[in-house]
C-alpha cells in the first residue's frame, strides 16, 4: 500500500516537472524566436532602405532640385520615427511646446535630415553597404550595424550603427543613426537644448534659428 502511495506521488511529481519543463521550453523558444524575428526585421528594414536610397540616387538625378527633395523626404519619412526624434532631441522642453510648435519642429528636423541626405546621396550610389553584427538591446531596441565601403578602396570604410524600434503596427523605424560613433540624435539634442535653455524654453526662437538661410 505504502509502495503504491509513493509510486503515485512520484508519478505526480514527475508529471508536474515535465509540464514545468515543457512550459519553460515553449516560453524560451518563443522569446528566442521573437528576439531573432526582431533582429531580422530590423536588418531587413535597413537593407531595404539602403537599396531604395541607392535607387533613388540614380532615378532622381535628372529631376529639379525641389522635386528631388520631395522624393527624398517621402523616402525618409517612411523609415524614421520623427515623433520620437522630436521628443528625444528637445528633452523636457518638449512638453512645454504647443501642438503647432511640435509640428513645426518636426518639419524643420526633417528638412535638416533631407539636406544632409541629399548631400551624400550621389556618393552613396557609388558605394556598397555591408551588413555587420546586429543585436537586441533591452525590451524594445534593435541595433543594426553596417559598413559603407568604397569598391575602389579610395575612401576609408565608414561604420554605421542604426538604432531601431517597432512602432504600433509592428514595422521597424529608425530612432537614431551613429556615423563612426557620432550620434545624430545626441548632437541635435545638444544644439536644441542649449538654444532652448538660453531662451527660457521658447520654441519659436529655436525654430527661427533652425530655419535661417535654408
Amino acid at each position: 500500500m505504502r509502495n503504491l502511495k509513493s509510486f503515485w506521488i512520484k508519478k505526480k511529481i514527475s508529471k508536474f516537472l515535465s509540464y514545468t519543463f515543457l512550459i519553460f521550453l515553449i516560453f524560451n523558444v518563443n522569446i528566442a524566436k521573437s528576439f531573432s524575428d526582431n533582429l531580422e526585421k530590423g536588418e531587413a528594414t535597413i537593407q531595404q532602405m539602403i537599396k531604395e536610397a541607392q535607387k533613388h540616387a540614380i532615378d532622381t538625378i535628372k529631376l529639379e532640385p525641389n522635386e528631388r527633395s520631395l522624393k527624398i523626404e517621402l523616402l525618409i519619412k517612411k523609415y524614421i520615427n520623427l515623433d520620437f526624434m522630436g521628443k528625444v532631441t528637445t528633452g523636457t522642453f518638449w512638453k512645454k511646446a504647443s501642438g503647432k510648435q511640435k509640428e513645426m519642429y518636426k518639419a524643420a528636423l526633417l528638412k535638416q535630415i533631407v539636406l544632409t541626405t541629399e548631400e551624400h546621396l550621389n556618393t552613396l550610389a557609388t558605394l556598397s553597404y555591408k551588413p555587420k553584427k546586429s543585436e537586441k538591446r533591452g525590451k524594445k531596441l534593435v541595433y543594426v550595424r553596417g559598413l559603407i565601403q568604397d569598391p575602389n578602396k579610395k575612401k576609408p570604410d565608414v561604420n554605421l550603427l542604426w538604432k531601431l524600434a517597432a512602432n504600433k503596427n509592428g514595422s521597424f523605424l529608425i530612432l537614431d543613426l551613429e556615423i563612426e560613433g557620432i550620434s545624430l540624435v545626441s548632437s541635435q539634442k545638444a544644439e536644441a537644448v542649449s538654444i532652448l535653455r538660453k531662451n527660457k524654453g521658447d520654441f519659436d526662437i529655436l525654430l527661427k534659428k533652425m530655419n535661417k538661410d535654408k
Partner: peptide, 24 residues
C-alpha cells in the same frame, strides 16, 4: 559647410568633436 548651416554651429562642432574624440 553643413555645420555652418545649423542652428548653433558652435554647439554642433563641440558635440561632434567630443563624441568623435571619446569614441577614438
Amino acid at each position: 559647410d553643413n555645420i555652418y548651416l545649423s542652428a548653433d554651429p558652435y554647439i554642433k562642432i563641440r558635440s561632434f568633436y567630443l563624441q568623435n574624440r571619446r569614441n577614438e
